[in-house]
Computed example of a mutant assay.
Amino acid sequence: MTTFNMEFDFSSAEQRAILDQVQREGYSLIAYKGATGPNQLACGVPAWFSVPFHSMFGLVTIDYQPQYKLYVSSRTSIAVNTTIQMQSLSDALSLGSAQTFNSNGSFVSGGVASVPPDSLGLFNNRPAGTPPITVGLACLVNTPMGTNYLPFCAFTLNSQSSIVMRPLESILLVASPQRLTSGSVQANVSAPGCTFSFNAGTVEYDLQVMPRTYAITNLPGTPSVNPVSSGSPIGLIVNGGN
């Protein structure tokens, strides 16, 4: 299975000086990851991971493989700055498969027919008339904070209904003074950042933090990233507006 890598090298004098600044100012590296599907939250996108720069030094590698779990939260009143709690989490799943979620919080195989090979399906088997649930995908990622399945998208799903969700390999990175945790829903980019996409031909991005603005860009001569301005809508960037 392909491993996708994001690397920062804080070994040079310039990058060490910048790292010292963002550490003193309490900045974190915050990432968002794309997905598509019906009834996606209109208020924003959950942060995938948030790593304080205090946890970084030297060569820092953040990597992940396209391994996913389904999550369910009973909370449906979700606004900006709400943190999504994954109350129930499925086993790791292969793309192209589906699960059924039951009232007791368990998952069983099947429930959605003809799931595309790049997607995952979920059927909400709670009794008709029960409140909608918030569902989504969690991706396994390795950061200086540890290796965990963390949520990166969120959708509303009614009882006795199904959904098909497709993860995207579009990534948004921001060096931000916000103190966010994984699952914290945000609408707009809080600081200058960058966006890029992984594919079969590009599995690693070598990145650097710029002085003064703390914007993130690629190292010269490495695969390029696209700059993102503070205030840009996160959902439009990572999900293509879906």
Rank of each mutant, 00 (worst) to 15 (best):
T3M: 04
M6T: 06
E7H: 08
F10V: 06
E14W: 13
R16P: 08
I18T: 13
D20H: 15
Q21F: 13
Q21H: 12
E25K: 14
G26F: 06
Y27N: 11
Y32G: 08
P38H: 07
N39V: 04
Q40M: 15
C43D: 11
C43M: 13
W48L: 13
V51T: 10
P52T: 02
I62S: 02
Y64H: 08
L70G: 06
V72F: 00
S73L: 02
S77L: 10
A79P: 05
V80D: 05
T82R: 00
T83V: 03
T83N: 03
I84V: 00
I84W: 01
I84G: 01
Q85T: 08
Q85A: 05
S88W: 08
L89N: 03
D91W: 06
L95E: 02
G96S: 03
G96V: 01
S97D: 05
S97W: 06
S103T: 05
G105D: 00
S106C: 00
V108L: 06
S109N: 07
G111W: 02
S114F: 15
V115P: 00
V115C: 04
P117R: 08
D118E: 10
D118R: 12
S119I: 04
G121I: 07
F123S: 10
R126V: 02
T130Y: 13
I133F: 03
I133N: 00
I133G: 03
G136H: 09
C139R: 15
V141W: 11
T147D: 05
N148I: 08
N148M: 13
F155W: 11
T156R: 11
M165A: 09
R166P: 09
L168N: 14
S170K: 15
L172K: 10
L173K: 05
R179E: 02
L180N: 03
T181W: 08
T181D: 11
Q186H: 09
S190W: 04
P192G: 06
C194R: 05
T195G: 12
F196I: 07
T202H: 10
D206R: 15
D206I: 13
P211E: 13
R212E: 10
T213D: 01
A215I: 08
T222M: 05
P227M: 06
V228G: 11
V228F: 11
G231E: 10
I234T: 06
V238W: 04
G240Y: 07
